[in-house]
Amino acid sequence: MLDDSKPLFVAVAEQIEDGILDGTYAEDGPVPSTNELAAFLRINPATAGKGLGLLVDAEVLIKRRGIGMFVAPGAREALRQRRRLAFEDQYIAPLLREAEQLGISPDDLARMITKEFAR
C-alpha cells in the first residue's frame, strides 16, 4: 500500500498527494487526521503526523486550529506542476536506460508510447 523505497513519512505524504491529484481530497476539503491515518495505514501516529507536516510545510495542506487539516486552495495545480518536473527524472530516465539495454531506438519507443496511449 505504501511505497517502501522511501522513508515511511515521505510515502505517507505522497499517498495524500495522490489523493489530492485524483480528486479524493477536494481543495478546501478535509484530509484524514493523524490518528485516522495512523489507524488506517497501521503506522505510528508520529510518522503519520510527520507526513502531514511535510505537506503543511510545502503549503499543500493548511492547518486550522482545533478543526483539522485541509487541502490548500490551488494545491492540486501546484502538485501537478511539481510532479511534472519530477516526471522526467523518475520515469523517462529509467525508461530510456532500459530501452537502450534492449536495443530499442528512440523512434521505436515513441511509436510504442503512441500505440499504448491509443488504447
Binding site: T34, N35, A38, A39, R42, I43, N44, P45
Partner: peptide
C-alpha cells in the same frame, strides 16, 4: 496479532 496492533495504535493515539 493484527487486532493487537490496531488496539495498541488506537489506544496509544487517544
Amino acid at each position: 496479532r493484527r487486532m493487537f496492533y490496531d488496539r495498541l495504535l488506537a489506544d496509544f493515539s487517544e
